[in-house]
C-alpha cells in the first residue's frame, strides 16, 4: 500500500505538544482520516481539541472528504480567536 507523508503544522493550543509533526497515511486518505491519525499521534488528552479543529492547506480549510493522494504540507487549526 502506497503511503504519503503529511507535514502538519500546529497552531495555538496545539503548540503545547509541538510546532509540527509528520504523519504517514495511506495515499488517498480523506482529511477525516488524517485528522484521526493526528489525534492518535497526539494522544487522548488532545482528543477534544482535535475534534474541534479543522485541517487546512495554505489556501483554504479542507472538507472532511477531501482526498490527499500525495505528500502534503497541511495545518491543523484549533478554534480561533482573532481580534
Amino acid at each position: 500500500m502506497k503511503t504519503v507523508t503529511i507535514t502538519m503544522r500546529l497552531y495555538g493550543a496545539f503548540r503545547k505538544y509541538q510546532d509540527s509533526l509528520t504523519l504517514s497515511v495511506p495515499a488517498g486518505s480523506p482529511v477525516a482520516a488524517i485528522k484521526e491519525a493526528l489525534g492518535k499521534a497526539l494522544g487522548p488528552q488532545a482528543k477534544d481539541l482535535v475534534m474541534d479543529s479543522v485541517i487546512a492547506d495554505d489556501r483554504a480549510i479542507l472538507p472532511p472528504g477531501f482526498v490527499i493522494d500525495r505528500d502534503s504540507s497541511l495545518s491543523v487549526l484549533p478554534p480561533v480567536c482573532g481580534g
Partner: peptide
C-alpha cells in the same frame, strides 16, 4: 478558547 471552524469545513 475560541470559535471552532468545524462548521466552515
Amino acid at each position: 478558547p475560541g470559535h471552532s471552524l468545524v462548521s466552515a469545513e
